[in-house]
Structures are given as C-alpha cells and as structure tokens.
Design a protein around this nucleic acid. Structure first.
Length: 734
DNA sequence: TAAACCGTTGTTTTT
DNA sequence: CAACGGTTTA
C-alpha cells in the first residue's frame, strides 16, 4: 500500500511515474522518453515490489550493458538493502548455461567466443574451403551467420532456404562453423541466447523451474532487444506473467545487432492486456536543448508520435561550430573544455561524443597537449589487446582443453618454434584421429610426419600445460602471476614493445585483483566469463576527475551537464555505410537510425550542447572535403547559435529550418493530413480545414515553402497550434 | 621453418 | 593509417 507524502519510494514521483512504479500484477510497458526518469522507474519498482513482500532473489532485472547493470545494482542496493539479480541478457544466459547445459549434451566448461574469435574461425574455414576472399569476405560471412542465429535458423534450415550459389556457400560455411564451435566446446554471443531457447524447448521442466523462481522480470532498454532476447523474456515470465518492459523507440540504435522495434511496438501481441504508461516529461535538459533534439528526431518518418516537453528554462542556445579540419575541431573542443573547467565545471560533467572510435585520436592529442584530464571510454579496447588475449587463451585452454582456438593462440606465444607447418600437420592428424589439437599434441611422439624439432616443441608445451594445470591457486591473481612467470611471457616481448606490454599486463593484474576481491575463491571460469562479456572495464569511471570521450552508442543511458557531439558531417554522422544503404537517394531505415543516434547524443546534455563539424577530415589516411551533416540543417532556428572560425560555409542541405511553436512537433507523414475543406483546387492553403489522425481537426494558419519542404502551421481545435513539415511532393498530392 | 618485409586492403556502432 | 596477407630472406 502506498503511503502518502513521506514514502521514500514514491514521494518525489510524478503521477505517471508513480503509476508505473506501483502497477500491480500483469505485463507492463513503460514508454519512457529521454530524460523522463527511466532508470528511476525500474529501481523504484523493484524497491516497491520487495516492500510488498517479494523476496529479492525472486526478481530478475535485465539491462543492456554491464555498466548499466552495475549502476542499477548499486542503486537498488541502497534502496532495498539487499542484492537483486541485475544483469545483462548475455551474462544471465551464460550463468544459466553453466548450470544446465549438460541437458543439451554439452560441457559446462564451454568457452565463450567473442566476435574476434568467431571471425578467426570463419577466416580459417574460408581458407580451408578455398573461397575467394573478395566475394566471400570472412567478416561479412560472420555477420551473415550471426543473422541466421538471431533468426533462430539452424544451418540445415538456412541450407533449405538458400537461393543461389552465394547463399548456398554461406550456409555451408555456417554448418562448418557450427561443427567447429561444437568440437571446441565453444559458444559465441548468439549461442548464449540461442542455447537457452533451445534448452527451454528441449527441457520444459528446466524452464518451469526458472519460471517458478522469477515472480517478476524487468527489462530495461526494451527497444534494443532482439528476437532471442524477446523470446527469453517471454519464456521467463510464462508462469507469473509479471513482466515490466521499459524503453523508448526513439532510442533504438542497435538494428545491426538484431534489435527489433516490433518487440516494443507490438508488445501487447505477445503480452496480451499489457498496461501501457507513457512518460513524456523531460527532467534533464534545458528547453533549448530539448527543442533541438525533438526537432531533429521528428524528421524520422517511421515513428510513433511522442512529444517530449519540459518546464525547464530556455538555457543557453545550442552552439553549432564549424572548423577547417578535424584537427582544428579537436583543438577547439579541447580549448572550450578548458575554458569551461576554468569557469568552474567539473571535468567529469563534460562529455565529448563521436560516431566512431577512431575519432578519439585527434581529441586525445589535443587534450593531452593542453594537459587536460580525459578518459577514453573504449569499450572493446582493453580485452582486445594482444597481451590480454594471449594470457587469457592459456586460462581458457586450462578450463576447456577442447578449445582449439585457445590452443592455437597459446601454443606459440611466446615463440617456441611451433609454426604454420607444424600446426597444419597437427590439424590433419586431429581430423583423422578425432579429438582436439591439444590432445593430438600430446601424442606428438606418435606422429611420424613431424620432425624432431617440432615434436620437441610440442612436448615442451604440453609439459608446461600440465605444470600449470597441476598447481592449485587461491586467487586468480596468483595463478596469473604464476602463468606469466612460467611462460616467460614478458621476457619474450621484443624490447620496443616491452613498455607497452608491461603496462597492459599491469592493468590486467589490477583488474584481476579487483575481481578476486569481489569474487573470493579464485574461480577461473568466472574470470573468463567476466572478461568475455564485460567490454567496458576500462569504461567510464564517473567519479574520475576527467573528461569522458566516447562513442554515441556507449553514451546511451548517461547524462552530463555539457555535451559535445563532434564530426557532424555527411559520411560521419549519418555514417557513410548508412548512406550506402539508401538505394533511392531518399532516406530510409538506416539513416533514421543514425538520426536516432544523434537524438540520443543530444538528449545526454543537461545544460549545454555543442555540435561541431569540420570541412575537411582524414579518411583512410587522406584528407577529404566533407559536407556538414543533414542533421545540422534540421535544427530549429530558435535557440541555436551558429559559429564559425572563418567565413561560414553554408550548410549543404536544403531542408527547411522549421519554425517553432510552443510544442516541438513536426510531422512529415504522407496522407496523415487530410484537407476537408480547401480552396477548391485541393491545394492546401491558409484557412483550409484539415484533419490529422492524432491531432484531430484544425484550421491551417499559414503555409510556408522552404526549399524541399513545406511548413504548415495548423491551429488544431484540441492541441493548439502545431507546425507540420511536409515535403513538397506530399502537398501536391493533398 | 620462422621472422622480417612490403604492398594491398578497407575501416560503425557492442553483447 | 592500420591490419592483414603474401613474399622474400635468414
């Protein structure tokens, strides 16, 4: 029962927020716009549920990134005082499979392959099949395999559906890839989800057990779930039917990872009688920032109407800054940051965002030259480092001796004279006799085709392996130190890389120290799982006294006083790859996702937003002239200040700069506006009576042509004056 | 057989 | 500008 004002869980909530937090049993969907208190809903709801008597260990909360999970776990803990399982889909599945995978006939010591590992396997297969690497790019094939898996298609099914030689080859690679992973007792990221679904299908009694356990399932960022994730969430809530899904379609930025907007847009299809709460009030940003962001996102056609509004003051204008080139841009951003810090801003409250990771390089240089503290939130970086991968491979091989990928990496690092030829012979022998590479290497004395040198090298490796396996360690740290010692890893690094390598290793040891502290008992499997699934260890430390630099993707879910979005150019922010997917030159799905990314970035800002672009940028090592992003031309006139170093170059896109009314609504949807009573020609003009499906009837106040677009202001009877943006074509058709 | 060298290739985003 | 693959050299 909610108490009135003094209730710490609901006291500071608005009515719709309270409704979501206190909602009773049954499926609940919360559509929560940027800055509307999304995380707060989930944490408070968990607190509310435990207060209602639900045991914390019968609540499952799922988020998308490890960072978000950590953050939420912390908040819940302070609120509830007890541990609630807050995790990502992938690590939830990994843990579940460690317990249950025997039911599928697999070993619980399975390895987890990341994208790079998968790519290696695919590359190897392509070589074996002698495929032309230009027609069959390994990276593309890996992506295609992942696509099949996300649709839950087996290799057999994909073979059945394959059309043409290309797709047939593709499914043959897929089949071999599966064989390879099964033989190595390995699962890739897609398998973690897929195997859980398989398990639930094959063993309903296991599913029933988990359904029983979780009285409530809460999923954050539901707009980014893919089909397997949707199915897992659906399966888990199957008994008690208590699912809370929170999300915002306008922040869906993971199509390339299989995110399906339908999961959230058609939520009530799969979760009948779902209660829906919509949160449209933004508490985060100034009115100027929110107007700019809303205007930008309103250019998306495939979009459900949602109006974000705020009571905040206008604040400073959004600043658009133009620079000669990307170095100039980086330098001036750093200078501006410096001025902000001198003016009293906290460095960790100023973020610089960009589309691609490599854009951080000039920024790093500029920050360093001004002695400004910064932290790169490099999401893949650290665990992709060679040294980490090498040492990890040893641990992986000890845990899972069948893992051929781990064997291949460990066997000749440091160099012990096991080269391509030896490996090839080992491979052939392994294929003939069956069994893993490690097992085959153990029998190297029986392999006639090996010369004595290679044989000796393999024997040495096996002895090392047995030594490492024989020693029990109390902590992962002591094991790792022992490993580095025994392998002579550091000594084998060439002198010019030594310093760098030592730094990486120190960093790893530091991470492991923390891991041991969190997870006493020195579990190597747990360590591997963490390092396979956590990508952002290096990630943001919100308390560090440093300016975070990160991609727009990794900024999702965060907020800062000041935000810079850099590199706003055609080809960078709508990324060229998205533009290439536009066969008709019109905008489509890919560009709209880029616009959502822009929207996510803009709505990270509380007080100040800077949008920067350069006229020249280094691409593939060559300086190229680039045009400003179309997204800049979509900014409203009000509350935006344009600045330039030299003579300003006009923004290259002819899109209208829409005039603003009290609400920031723009619509471009064809046929949404119907002329009820016009000037007789069917043309839209001032005074015409019109109807709109969501806003009802109204009278056209004015029609302004602005290049490619026509801005129609309509006084709706119920909603007041709104601006609608139509393309000229649309108006012709009305 | 393995390491050093050179030319070609193509670069989003992340669990 | 890097990372990869193929080629030459020790």
């Amino acid at each position: 029962m909610p108490k009135r004002s003094a209730d710490p869980i609901t006291a500071d909530l608005t009515e719709p927020q309270r409704e979501a937090v206190l909602y009773g049993d049954g499926p609940l969907l919360v559509i929560a716009g940027a800055g509307s208190g999304k995380t707060r809903i989930i944490t408070r709801r968990i607190a509310h549920l435990t207060r209602e008597g639900i045991a914390p260990d019968r609540i499952l909360a799922v988020t998308f990134t490890n960072r978000a999970a950590d953050e939420m776990r912390r908040r819940v803990e302070t609120l509830v005082g007890r541990d609630v399982l807050v995790t990502t889909f992938h690590s939830f599945c990994a843990r579940l499979l460690r317990r249950e995978i025997a039911a599928l006939g697999m070993q619980p010591s399975f390895s987890i392959y990341d994208q790079a590992d998968s790519a290696r396997v695919v590359r190897q297969i392509c070589k074996e099949m002698k495929l032309d690497p230009t027609t069959y790019q390994p990276a593309r094939l890996r992506e295609r395999i992942s696509l099949h898996k996300r649709r839950l298609q087996t290799p057999e099914q994909s073979t059945g559906q394959a059309v043409g030689i290309g797709e047939q080859t593709e499914s043959r690679v897929y089949a071999r890839y599966e064989e390879r992973l099964r033989a190595s007792n390995a699962l890739d990221f897609d398998d973690l989800l897929g195997k859980v679904i398989e398990l639930f299908n094959v063993c309903p009694e296991i599913l029933r057990q988990y359904q029983e356990t979780y009285l409530h399932v809460l999923v954050d960022e539901y707009q980014d779930t893919n089909l397997p994730q949707h199915l897992i969430a659906h399966a888990l809530q199957g008994k008690h039917r208590n699912i809370t899904a929170v999300g915002d379609p306008d922040q869906m930025i993971y199509t390339w990872r299989g995110a399906r907007l339908e999961n959230i847009l058609e939520f009530d299809k799969d979760f009948p009688a779902a209660h829906v709460v919509t949160l449209e009030r933004n508490y985060r940003s100034t009115a100027n920032i929110l107007r700019a962001a809303s205007t930008c996102i309103s250019f998306n056609q495939m979009r459900h109407d949602k109006l974000l509004w705020t009571d905040s003051e206008a604040g400073e204008p959004v600043r658009v800054m133009q620079f000669r080139d990307s170095y100039d841009e980086a330098q001036r951003i750093a200078q501006t940051v410096q001025e902000l810090i001198e003016g009293g801003s906290e460095p960790n409250e100023i973020a610089v965002l960009y589309r691609t990771n490599y854009q951080s390089l000039p920024l790093e240089d500029s920050f360093a030259s001004l002695n400004l503290p910064y932290q790169i939130v490099d999401t893949v970086g650290f665990f992709e480092r060679k040294q980490v991968k090498d040492l990890r491979a040893y641990v992986q091989l000890l845990v899972n001796p069948d893992d051929d990928e781990a064997f291949l990496r460990a066997v000749n690092v440091p160099r012990r004279g096991v080269g391509d030829k030896t490996i090839e012979k080992l491979r052939q022998s392994a294929r003939r006799a069956g069994g893993s590479l490690l097992r085959t290497a153990r029998r190297s004395s029986e392999l006639d085709e090996l010369d004595s040198r290679s044989r000796h090298a393999l024997e040495r490796f096996c002895t090392l392996y047995d030594d490492l396996a024989s020693v029990q360690h109390k902590t992962v740290l002591s094991f790792l130190k022992h490993l580095i010692e025994e392998t002579g890893y550091v000594e084998a690094v060439p002198p010019e890389e030594r310093e760098d390598a030592e730094e990486v290793i120190d960093h790893l040891l530091e991470y492991v120290t923390q891991y041991d502290r969190r997870q006493p008992g020195g579990d190597l499997v747990g360590f591997l799982e963490q390092t396979a699934l956590i990508s952002d260890v290096d990630g943001l430390n919100p308390r560090a006294h440093a300016v975070p630099l990160m991609t727009l993707h990794s900024a999702k879910g965060l907020e800062f006083d000041v935000v810079f979005i850099s590199g706003l150019e055609e080809g960078m922010l709508p990324h060229e790859r998205a533009l290439r997917e536009n066969p008709y030159g019109g905008e489509d799905y890919a560009v709209e996702e880029e616009r959502r990314l822009m929207h996510v970035g803009m709505t990270r800002a509380r007080r100040k937003l800077y949008l920067t672009h350069a006229l020249k940028r280094m691409i593939r090592g060559m300086e190229q002239t680039v045009r400003p992003s179309r997204f800049l031309s979509e900014l409203p006139e009000e509350g935006v200040a344009w600045e330039s170093d030299g003579p300003a170059v006009t923004v290259g896109f002819g899109a209208a700069r829409p005039v603003q009314e009290t609400q920031f609504v723009l619509e471009r949807k064809r046929a949404q506006l119907k002329v009820l009573d016009g000037d007789g020609n069917g043309r839209i003009s001032a005074g015409a009576r019109v109807a709109h499906p969501s806003y009802g009837e109204g009278v056209v106040a004015s029609v302004d042509s602005a290049g490619k677009y026509v801005l129609v202001r309509v006084a709706f009877l119920e909603r007041g004056v709104l601006s609608l943006l139509l393309s000229s074509d649309d108006v012709e058709r009305l």
